[in-house]
Amino acid sequence: MRIRNRRTAALTFPADRWAANKAAEQVLRTVRGWGHQGLDEQDLETAVRFLVDAAVRDGGRRVSMHLGDQEDKILVVALSHQAGNSPEGDVFDGLRTLATVDSCGDDLAADGRRVWAVLNTGPHPRRP
């Protein structure tokens, strides 16, 4: 995966029951440093937990988080390092309930399955 011409970060965690909480904490700390004024920290933490939990369920030994930003958007990707099944519908259903998630999805590659979300940190109307 290549993310160019923007700020990026990569973090790795053992794929265990603590991975989602550890990832949410470290991702939030990283993204805070990028200075997005409209960042909804609760949405970011929740999105990271959904993504990491889905990656852990793939059964690999580790989960990598890849972050990137461009203008008022933040890309959050969890890589399972394991070919997994399509995520359960509740992963995407949960992500879609978050007001700042613009899009989400998954794909399979040689290095494993990626699940991702794009969060909007700019001015936006709140969903009901």
Rank of each mutant, 00 (worst) to 15 (best):
25 E>Y: 13
30 T>L: 08
55 A>H: 09
65 M>E: 04
95 L>P: 07
114 R>T: 03
73 K>E: 00
30 T>P: 04
39 L>D: 01
17 R>A: 14
66 H>T: 06
62 R>N: 12
61 R>T: 13
75 L>E: 00
27 V>M: 05
113 R>Y: 13
48 V>K: 11
77 V>K: 00
56 V>M: 09
115 V>D: 05
18 W>G: 07
43 D>E: 05
80 S>K: 07
123 P>C: 08
101 V>L: 06
60 G>N: 06
71 E>K: 04
19 A>T: 10
3 I>Q: 01
125 P>V: 15
75 L>W: 00
114 R>L: 00
3 I>F: 00
13 F>C: 11
6 R>K: 10
38 G>H: 15
15 A>S: 13
90 D>V: 14
66 H>D: 01
32 R>H: 12
76 V>Q: 00
53 D>I: 02
34 W>G: 06
17 R>H: 12
122 G>T: 14
117 A>I: 00
80 S>N: 06
36 H>R: 10
81 H>E: 06
115 V>E: 02
86 S>M: 08
55 A>Q: 03
89 G>V: 00
81 H>G: 10
103 S>M: 14
20 A>I: 09
29 R>A: 07
79 L>C: 05
52 V>C: 08
23 A>P: 05
13 F>M: 06
62 R>F: 13
60 G>S: 06
108 L>P: 01
118 V>G: 02
117 A>G: 14
